[in-house]
Amino acid sequence: MVLASASAVFAQEAQRQGKTDYILAVSWQPGFCETRPKRKECAAQAGAQRDATHFSLHGLWPMKKSYCGVAADIKARDRKGGWTELPQLAMTTETAARLQVAMPGTQSGLDRHQWLRSGTCYGGTADHYFQTQLRFLDELNGSAVQALFSGRIGREVTEAEVKQAFDVGFGEGAGERVRMRCEKAGARNVITGLTIGLSGDVSGAAGLSGLVLAAGRTDFKCPRGVVDAAGIQ
């Protein structure tokens, strides 16, 4: 009994002192589009689309690394925007097709930007980089977190509710590794997305739960926000 108690204390301490290796960024696309209506991916957003009720992919960011091995001229082009003019990525037809659904921002070249800025520091191919993110996104969209958001469309969620949903879906303490992004849209504070800390080998078969719980804690930032519905309000 003493050994079991000591192990629990050790695990809790490890969680408190965890170091974040990666950030998984996901968007709540209706809120994102509410604040950026001129983006290509926002012009045709509708309630029947998957991104109206599920999280969308934004990126997987290695901490404190960017543009690994990227030529200076390509890096300069990326930083100026106009991402659709950047070099196309080498991906299988299957991965590219899945990414177009999971990452609406591909219409603006977001996938090319994310690969140059962050994927080049990932240590693998573009195909594997995005396959990894698609796997994580599927886990998130199959969890209590997505259920909470889809059930609150048009209404607010609070910090406590989001953290609890993460704890239910990915283990106690997971909610302490999440930050919610919100922006003002008129008088409303709308949720535009989440950033989730990860730590460990993300390139293997590890699930989100262990990777999230191994990461360091973070401030939640946005105490409450509206889960926006598709279409400009």
Rank of each mutant, 00 (worst) to 15 (best):
L89N: 03
K80P: 00
A147P: 00
P87G: 08
S150M: 04
D127M: 07
K75P: 00
S56Y: 03
L134Y: 07
A71N: 12
G142K: 00
A96R: 14
L134C: 02
M91T: 13
T95M: 09
L89Q: 08
T93K: 15
L86Y: 11
E139S: 14
L86C: 06
K65M: 12
A71R: 15
M63W: 00
L110T: 10
Q100A: 15
L140A: 05
V101E: 15
D127R: 02
T125A: 02
R135V: 01
A144N: 05
I74C: 01
L110Y: 06
P87T: 10
Q131I: 01
T132R: 13
D127P: 03
A71F: 01
T120N: 00
A90H: 14
A76V: 06
S150N: 07
D73R: 13
S56K: 03
T106K: 02
L116A: 10
G109W: 06
P62S: 13
S108P: 08
D111L: 07
G151C: 06
A147N: 12
A126N: 01
S118R: 10
E94S: 14
G151H: 11
V70H: 07
F136E: 06
H58R: 12
P62A: 09
G123Y: 05
G81D: 06
A96Y: 06
L134G: 08
T132D: 10
L148V: 01
H58P: 03
G109P: 08
Q114M: 13
P104K: 05
L148K: 01
Q131V: 01
R135L: 02
L99I: 10
A96N: 04
E139P: 09
S56F: 10
F149C: 03
T92C: 09
A96G: 03
S56I: 08
A97N: 13
A147R: 14
K80Y: 00
K64Q: 14
K64P: 00
L134E: 08
Q100I: 07
H58N: 13
C121D: 09
L57P: 04
W83M: 05
G151T: 04
F130V: 03
E85D: 14
S56E: 05
A97F: 09
K64C: 01
G81A: 06
A97Q: 14
T84V: 12
L60A: 05
E94C: 02
M103N: 04
V145R: 04
A71H: 10
T132W: 03
N141L: 13
R98G: 12
R77T: 01
P62H: 07
Q107W: 01
L116F: 11
V145D: 03
M91L: 15
K75Q: 14
D127L: 02
Q88V: 12
W61H: 08
R77E: 11
A72K: 14
P62V: 09
G81E: 02
L148S: 07
T84Q: 12
Q133H: 04
G82L: 10
T84I: 11
L116D: 05
L140S: 06
S56C: 02
R79P: 00
F55E: 03
G82P: 04
W115R: 13
H128G: 08
N141F: 12
H113K: 11
V101I: 15
D138H: 13
G105W: 05
D111Y: 09
Q133S: 13
G151N: 11
Y129W: 00
